[in-house]
């Protein structure tokens, strides 16, 4: 880090989060859990999954930014994590596209050989 420190034990590493912030983040996560259980019992007319995913992503963001220190960390670490999310998206997109190509054949085969829809 510093060229002037001879005793590397003196240098400051890491970022200490205030306890009050950790408590607030935990409280927020529990509230969001309660919210997702509540919305899960309602019929949102096809919006159930998007709403549940928005809440889950908010919870995940809280965990990443504060518990996992990404907000105070070197941006490169956050970039690695976002890259993983991007690759999952690519994975989903390719498999979804591929499955869409042969799904009708599977359904036809199922009806013919196993029966039913």
């Amino acid at each position: 880090m510093s060229d002037h420190t001879h005793d590397s034990g003196e240098e400051h590493i890491g970022h200490v989060l205030p306890l009050s912030l950790l408590v607030k983040v935990f409280g927020g996560l529990v509230l969001l859990t309660a919210l997702t259980v509540f919305t899960g019992t309602m019929n949102l007319h096809g919006w159930d999954l998007p709403v549940a995913m928005v809440i889950a992503t908010s919870k995940a963001s809280l965990v990443c930014l504060f518990f996992m220190h990404l907000k105070y960390d070197k941006p490169f670490n956050g970039m690695i994590f976002l890259l993983s999310v991007l690759f999952v998206g690519l994975f989903l997109a390719f498999v979804g596209y591929d499955a869409g190509q042969y799904q009708d054949d599977i359904k036809a085969y199922t009806i013919e050989h196993i029966g039913g829809e």
């Binding site: 859990t33 997702t36 899960g40 309602m42 019929n43 549940a52 995913m53 919870k59 965990v63």
Partner: peptide
């Protein structure tokens, strides 16, 4: 591990 469960819970338990 917590993050993964955050997504597993609504995806498996909360399908209406």
């Amino acid at each position: 591990v917590d993050l993964i469960w955050i997504f597993l819970f609504p995806l498996l338990y909360l399908i209406t």
